[in-house]
């Protein structure tokens, strides 16, 4: 498995984004606060994932806080991949679901729980 650790995980005061490339699927793991502090990392990770052009799963179980920057990242992923595919959002917290609901972004994702 090819791994791209985009954020330094030791610095969990902020958040972190990691991208894992499997042969069939790209997994993006979000932890901590996913906000504007993470802007550059998110942009980087998003571009890598979209360039890889395969189905994307986002593990959001570890997200403690998300703002509009986080929403924009998720929406960009959803808009970036092929139209017939759907981004899978795994184990989002209630606050993340709430945020996606309020901003009308829920239809872009297939929400699953493990």
């Amino acid at each position: 498995m090819l791994t791209v650790a985009v954020t330094d995980h030791q610095d969990l005061d902020t958040g972190a984004v990691s991208v894992f490339f499997d042969p069939t699927e790209t997994l993006i793991v979000l932890v901590g606060d996913v906000d504007r502090v993470l802007s550059d990392d998110l942009e980087h990770a998003g571009r890598d994932a979209i360039d890889h052009a395969q189905s994307i799963t986002i593990d959001a179980a570890g997200v403690t806080f998300m703002d509009s920057v986080g929403v924009a990242f998720l929406v960009r992923l959803a808009a970036g991949i092929a139209t017939k595919q759907q981004v899978v959002l795994r184990d989002p917290s209630l606050s993340v679901l709430d945020l996606l609901q309020i901003t009308g972004s829920i239809p872009l994702f297939r929400v699953t729980s493990s």
């Binding site: 929403v71 929406v75 808009a79 309020i102 901003t103 009308g104 872009l108």
Partner: peptide
């Protein structure tokens, strides 16, 4: 007024 909400512009809704 939480109705009539779609994803952000740029999501190609």
């Amino acid at each position: 007024l939480d109705g009539a909400q779609s994803p952000m512009l740029g999501a190609r809704t």
